[in-house]
């Protein structure tokens, strides 16, 4: 068998393309849902941390540390295979969504928090001295500056986390990797895996390009 026949077999491509396109939508849906709830959750949590309530911050720090320390696959297996024993049946999609969201919240909370601590005390004082409340100063002055500062590391983390949707293949979520690897077993051809790689590129290359645009748009010299 030649190279083309192994990786770009036209017959195999024709057979499995419809399934793979469905899988692309599943991956995209998971990724978008995870990004929205993960980044929003992380932003909210970092703002909550600014309030400086001791037990709340303790919870946030423990949550962020645990979620960043554990391999996501461990959490996925615990939720998927452990929860049914408690009478809680989560779909594979739901398990991936919950775990990746929690992981992204944890990382993005730390990223936003890093940005917030980099906003100078003078900015806070300027806001407070003009009669703005602590919450207003956070919302209008500190957070917008922090968010701009952390766009590059945040985008890195978002991309890294959304690529973990491939872990859905372990628990039967019909996303790109699981659909293509079962197609590979049935067809005996490596072509579906090539298709998977191309599908990931089709999704993530534009994402990388858009992220560069966002970085440039919000960059301002200091």
């Amino acid at each position: 068998m030649g190279f083309l026949d192994t990786f770009f077999n036209m017959q195999v491509i024709a057979n499995y393309l419809p399934d793979l396109i469905d899988a692309v939508w599943v991956t995209l849906g998971l990724a978008v849902a995870t990004i929205i709830s993960g980044v929003l959750g992380g932003a909210l949590m970092s703002c909550l941390r600014v309030a400086g309530v001791r037990w709340v911050n303790f919870f946030i720090i423990v949550f962020a540390d645990v979620m960043r320390a554990l391999p996501p696959l461990v959490l996925i297996l615990i939720l998927f295979f452990g929860m049914p024993s408690l009478g809680i049946n989560l779909s594979g999609w739901m398990v991936i969504y919950i775990v990746l969201t929690a992981v992204l919240i944890a990382f993005s909370e730390e990223v936003f928090w890093g940005g917030l601590t980099a906003v100078t005390a003078g900015q806070w004082e300027a806001g407070r001295a003009t009669g703005l409340s602590k919450a207003q100063t956070l919302f209008y002055i500190a957070f917008p500056q922090a968010a701009r500062m952390v766009i590059p590391p945040l985008i890195n983390r978002v991309l890294a986390t959304t690529k973990l949707t491939a872990l859905g293949s372990v628990i039967g979520v019909k996303e790109i990797l699981s659909v293509s690897s079962s197609a590979q077993s049935f067809s005996g051809s490596a072509t579906p895996l090539t298709m998977a790689a191309i599908a990931y590129l089709v999704i993530f290359i534009p994402a990388v390009i858009v992220s560069h645009r966002i970085e440039r748009h919000y960059h301002y010299a200091t």
Binding site: T120, G122, Q123, A126, A129, T130, G131, Q145, R148
Partner: peptide
């Protein structure tokens, strides 16, 4: 305090304009 601070303007050594 916020309402009181409206009556007292303050100018800092480091300006502290909001850069964004």
């Amino acid at each position: 305090l916020d309402r009181m601070r409206l009556k007292v303007g303050m100018v800092f050594q480091g300006f502290h304009l909001y850069p964004h």
